[in-house]
C-alpha cells in the first residue's frame, strides 16, 4: 500500500512538473510548424513568470497576473517574429538574444523593484492559482486504489494545469481540423505553395509566433503563480530547452507533445524522489543520470538511431520569393 501511495505521489508530482513543459512545448510546436525555429521558449517563459508575479502581487489577482504574463511573453515573441519574419534575420541568433535579454532584464528589474535579490515578494491567496479540489475528493480518497487516483491525479491541480490539457486539445484540433491549421502545417513545409495559393506567408507566421507567445505566457505564469509562490531569478532553469527536446521527441505533434512532456516531468519527479535513496539491489541511482535522459534521448533520436525526427522542412528559413 505504501508503494502504491508513493507511486501516486510520484505521478502527481510528475503531472505538476510537466504542466509548464506542455505549454512551452506547444508554443514551440506552433512556431516551428509555421517555419519559425524558436529556441527562445526559455526567455519568453521567464519574462512571463516575472510579469505575472509582479502583476499578481500588485493586484492580488492571479488572472490579471496571467494576463500580464501573456502580454509580456507576446512582446518578446513579436521581437523574435520581427527579426525572423520581417527582417529575415538568423532565427537561432534571435532566440539566443531573447533568452539572454529575458534573463538579464527580469533579474535586474526584479531586484530594482523588490530589492530581494531578484525575487518577487511571496504571493498568497488570490494572487496564486489554487488547486481545484473536485467534488468529493476527500471522501473518495478513502476508497482503495481508485480513490487516490481521483483525489490526487484527476482532482487537485491548479486551474492552469487543466488549461494545459485544453491547450493540447485545442492545438491538436485546430491544426488538424481547421483552415488556419492546414495553412500553418503547409507554411512550415513549403511557404511557396502557400504563397501561390494566395495566402500570406508573413501573416500566418506572425499568428503562429503570437500563439507561441500566449502559450509561453501560460507556461511562465504557471511557474510563478501555480507551482511556486512568486518569481525567482532564472526560475525556468532550462525548462524551455527540455520543452524543445520534448517537441523533437513528439515529432512536432500535439498529443505526443503532451505525453512526452508528461514523461519528462515524471523523470524529473523520479529524480527528486530518488535523491539520496538506496534502491534495494541496485544501490543509489545517480539522480543526474535520470536528469540527463531527456537530453540524451533527444540527441539519440535526432541522430536517427531510434526512429527519425524530421523537422518541418522550411523551419529556420526566411521566406524569400524566388525570381
Amino acid at each position: 500500500m505504501e508503494i502504491y501511495s508513493t507511486l501516486i505521489a510520484i505521478l502527481e508530482s510528475g503531472m505538476r512538473l510537466s504542466v509548464p513543459l506542455v505549454f512551452a512545448c506547444l508554443a514551440g510546436l506552433w512556431s516551428e510548424r509555421s517555419g519559425v525555429v524558436d529556441i527562445g521558449l526559455e526567455g519568453k517563459m521567464l519574462v512571463a513568470a516575472f510579469a505575472s508575479a509582479a502583476a499578481a502581487g500588485a493586484t492580488n489577482n492571479a488572472l490579471i497576473g496571467l494576463g500580464a504574463g501573456i502580454i509580456a511573453s507576446i512582446g518578446f515573441a513579436l521581437i523574435h517574429g520581427f527579426a525572423a519574419i520581417s527582417q529575415r534575420g538568423n532565427q537561432i541568433v534571435s532566440g539566443v538574444a531573447i533568452n539572454m535579454l529575458a534573463a538579464g532584464l527580469t533579474a535586474l528589474v526584479g531586484n530594482a523593484w523588490y530589492a530581494q535579490g531578484g525575487r518577487t515578494p511571496p504571493l498568497e491567496g488570490n494572487a496564486r492559482f489554487q488547486p481545484l479540489t473536485w467534488p468529493g475528493a476527500e471522501t473518495i480518497d478513502q476508497i482503495p486504489l481508485i480513490g487516490p487516483v481521483y483525489a490526487h491525479l484527476i482532482s487537485g491541480h491548479s486551474t492552469l494545469a487543466y488549461c494545459a490539457l485544453v491547450a493540447t486539445l485545442l492545438s491538436g484540433f485546430v491544426l488538424r481540423r481547421t483552415r488556419f491549421g492546414l495553412r500553418i502545417r503547409a507554411v512550415g513545409e513549403n511557404p511557396a505553395a502557400v504563397d501561390t495559393a494566395g495566402v500570406s506567408v508573413t501573416r500566418l507566421r506572425y499568428f503562429a509566433v503570437i500563439i507561441a507567445g500566449v502559450l509561453c505566457g501560460f507556461a511562465g505564469s504557471y511557474l510563478a503563480l501555480g507551482q511556486a509562490a512568486g518569481f525567482l531569478t532564472n526560475m525556468t532553469a532550462g525548462k524551455g530547452f527540455i520543452a524543445l527536446a520534448a517537441l523533437i521527441f513528439a515529432k512536432w505533434r500535439a498529443w505526443p507533445a503532451l505525453w512526452t512532456c508528461f514523461l519528462f516531468g515524471l523523470l524529473d519527479a523520479v529524480a527528486i524522489r530518488l535523491q539520496g535513496v538506496m534502491v534495494p539491489g541496485i544501490g543509489q541511482i545517480p539522480v543526474q543520470a535520470i536528469q540527463a535522459l531527456p537530453y540524451l534521448m533527444t540527441v539519440i533520436l535526432l541522430a536517427g538511431f531510434i526512429g527519425k525526427a524530421i523537422p518541418p522542412k522550411a523551419s529556420g528559413l526566411p521566406y524569400v520569393k524566388e525570381r
Binding site: V93, S94, V96, M100, L101, A103, G104, L105
Partner: peptide
Amino acid sequence: VAISGLVIL
C-alpha cells in the same frame, strides 16, 4: 546579461 542580449539582437 541584458546588454549582451541586446548586442546579439
